[in-house]
């Protein structure tokens, strides 16, 4: 190695120093929780926090990608709802149907996402509006499919959500963790991954450089749909059945860990590792508040305040005069 100037490790470079804020918050929360209850800082409780993070993690992963391109996907909640119903509705308690249905649901999720992407690219309408619209359409379809819980799944289906590896480590949360690492590797080490950052950073420059911006956008929204589908499967595993409002809270909830993790809504900056830490922060926060014996109602208040705190720290750069 030649002489190198002192700099942050690559993992933290490029504005990713924001991660330090999340890490600091995580430590702060941990200390707070540990001082409140003896049972907080136990392995059992931490594994619990880990397990609880899976659903939010999966949906936020896809959301991070859309936000990195400067967009957003407001249809994920509806997609989760519809696909959760299709999962339990089509499996209908039949062991043999599990694999084909899950595979089909994942493909369908990706297709719905791709349709979002195609609409965004073809119309030039802001992703917020497009996915708001497609979200409404998908929600309507979900309600046409059923107004309440539909179908059922075999008992063994709960392994995704409740199953553990030896040592009590949640399978679902570990799958989510693995996917985060995979996507992080993808973003940092593949051509398409780097181009996702480029098109979010400056779409006009991306066009002038001849980058396949449209194709990448379609792919990113397809990925978001895919991860929403995976979240749907997870939630069915957790609750044994799909319902028309299962995913409703996930649309906005999926954005919190992304922005708390330092990914800018303007696009081009951030990454999925920040989101993962953001997910753990939300999970730990809810857990801590339980220990503090604070009414679940205040959890919302705290969550909102955390968003405000986070977004006030990572100030988005303003277009100025000089």
């Amino acid at each position: 190695m030649q002489t190198r100037t002192l700099r942050l490790p690559r993992f933290l470079a490029g504005g990713r120093a924001a991660l330090l804020v999340v890490v600091a918050l995580l430590i702060l929360l941990f200390v707070l929780g540990a001082s409140v209850s003896d049972r907080f800082a136990t392995t059992g409780n931490m594994l619990n926090v880990y397990e609880q993070s899976a659903g939010l993690a999966l949906v936020s992963l896809g959301q991070t990608l859309t936000i990195l391109t400067g967009g957003i996907d407001l249809s994920v909640g509806s997609v989760i709802s519809l696909l959760s119903m299709l999962t339990s509705g089509l499996i209908a308690g039949d062991e043999a149907m599990v694999i084909p249905v899950v595979a089909g649901v994942l493909v369908l999720g990706a297709l719905i996402g791709a349709a979002n992407g195609v609409t965004i690219v073809a119309t030039g309408v802001h992703p917020l509006i497009v996915t708001l619209g497609t979200g409404a359409i998908v929600q309507g379809v979900a309600l046409l499919y059923g107004l309440g819980p539909v179908g059922s799944v075999p008992i063994s289906f709960d392994a995704f959500a409740y199953g553990t590896f030896p040592g009590g480590i949640s399978i679902g949360a570990t799958v989510a963790l693995a996917l985060f690492l995979l996507v992080s590797f993808f973003l940092n080490n593949t051509r398409t991954g780097r181009r996702i950052y480029a098109i979010g950073d400056d779409p006009h420059a991306a066009d002038l450089m001849g980058l396949p911006r449209r194709r990448i956008l379609v792919g990113v929204y397809a990925a978001s749909g895919f991860f929403a589908a995976l979240t749907a499967v997870y939630l069915v595993s957790r609750f044994n059945v799909g319902q028309p409002y299962t995913g409703a809270n996930y649309t906005l909830a999926s954005i919190t860990p992304v922005v708390v993790g330092g990914t800018m809504l303007a696009g081009g900056r951030g990454g999925v590792i920040g989101t993962l830490l953001g997910v753990y922060l939300v999970s730990l926060l809810n857990n801590t508040l339980n220990f503090l014996d604070i009414s679940s109602h205040y959890q919302l208040v705290v969550q909102g305040l955390v968003i405000i705190l986070a977004v006030s720290v990572y100030v988005e750069k303003q277009r100025g005069l000089a």
Binding site: T119, T123, V125, I129, V130, L132, G133, T134, G135, A136, I137, V138, Q139, G140, V141, L143, L144
Partner: peptide, 11 residues
């Protein structure tokens, strides 16, 4: 169909 139409109309 209300919300489906709403979605279509906005797009």
């Amino acid at each position: 169909a209300q919300i489906i139409l709403k979605g279509i109309v906005i797009i």
